[in-house]
């Protein structure tokens, strides 16, 4: 591990435990240094968790998104940004094989997870999704109690847990929700506010201890205060998890991510159909200051999109 990664990794574990109760009392949102500028991000990821090489994703014969070549580094936050219809959500769903559930979806190129081909013939998509979790755009808690929502994953995956109560508490604490719900764990999840529901969904995802957490515009349905809480929580989670987030919000990408992949749309001259294309992938600081592609610069500077 490099010295760039070191201060993030180890002391943070201890820090996190002392930090969290205090964090819940008064979320230290203000004055927190944006992650992207607050640390040195190495030129290339130290340890690649997911390696995407020359991937294109099709729905039938229609190419939804192409030109995907990205390396997702361990304990980094990578943002996928770009205008609507650029295929960033489609790309995200390819990283835990959620696209398999859409009839007609297929993929060319290679996605490998820690050296294994994610789309290899012997890979079980169920296992993939247990390692690579996902949080959706709209909060989608199950119609169950708060407790049962968090315990769902460990239960269905047959995770060996000595004490489910501890798992639930830990997941809710990591998702910065514990203090708000600890006295009403048996209450129905639908009673929570939108922001709380989304944090519950994040708690539910990390309760199965995944390696990677995919987030598909997790804050787009939330108000700014809930968004701020979740952003702060994500930077905390990045001490343990590899996070890939799709966002419409460029400021959000700039605030929390280490690296950014920029996508755009492009019209096929022959068919007139619009499909997505990954344009550029780099350190977030570089994407937002000196992007190498003109299209990125136009988007960042607000000329389109």
């Amino acid at each position: 591990m490099s010295d760039a990664d070191e201060p993030m990794a180890d002391p943070s574990h201890e820090l996190a435990d002392q930090d969290r109760p205090a964090a819940a009392e008064a979320p230290p949102l203000a004055g927190r240094i944006p992650r992207a500028t607050g640390r040195t991000v190495p030129d290339a990821p130290e340890e690649i968790v997911i390696n995407v090489a020359d991937v294109a994703i099709y729905y039938g014969s229609f190419c939804a998104v192409g030109g995907l070549t990205v390396q997702f580094g361990r304990r980094e936050i990578t943002a996928l940004i770009g205008p609507s219809g650029c295929g960033k959500s489609t790309a995200l769903r390819a990283f835990n094989r959620m696209n398999d559930l859409i009839p007609g979806a297929r993929l060319t190129g290679s996605v490998s997870y820690r050296g294994q081909d994610l789309y290899g013939p012997r890979v079980d998509p169920i296992t993939v999704r247990r390692r690579i979790g996902m949080v959706f755009q709209k909060p989608n808690p199950f119609p169950k109690s708060i407790y049962d929502n968090v315990a769902y994953g460990p239960r269905v995956t047959g995770m060996k847990v000595p004490n489910m109560d501890d798992v639930v508490e830990e997941a809710l604490t990591s998702a910065a929700l514990w203090d708000e719900v600890k006295d009403k764990l048996r209450q129905h999840a639908f009673g929570l506010s939108g922001g709380q529901q989304q944090r519950l969904c994040i708690a539910r995802t990390i309760a199965v201890r995944p390696d990677v957490v995919l987030m598909d515009e997790p804050c787009s349905a939330l108000d700014p205060i809930s968004t701020a809480k979740i952003e702060y929580m994500m930077t905390e989670l990045a001490d343990e998890y590899t996070i890939i987030i799709v966002t419409h919000n460029m400021q959000q990408a700039a605030r929390i991510s280490d690296r950014t992949a920029f996508f755009t749309t492009e019209v096929d001259d022959a068919t007139g159909r619009r499909s997505g294309l990954m344009v550029e992938f780099d350190r977030t600081a570089k994407i937002f200051s000196t992007p190498s592609d003109q299209r990125t610069e136009d988007y960042i500077s607000g000329k389109f999109g």
């Binding site: 999704r129 979790g133 989608n140 269905v156 995956t157 969904c201 995802t205």
Partner: peptide
């Protein structure tokens, strides 16, 4: 039952059977 719930359960590593018995039917 909204498809969001099925997707959420799938993303947690549920099989189709688990989605049916643990999410769709209770919902």
């Amino acid at each position: 039952v909204p498809d969001d719930l099925r997707a959420g359960a799938r993303a947690l590593g549920s099989t189709a059977r688990q989605v049916t018995t643990r999410v769709t039917i209770p919902a």
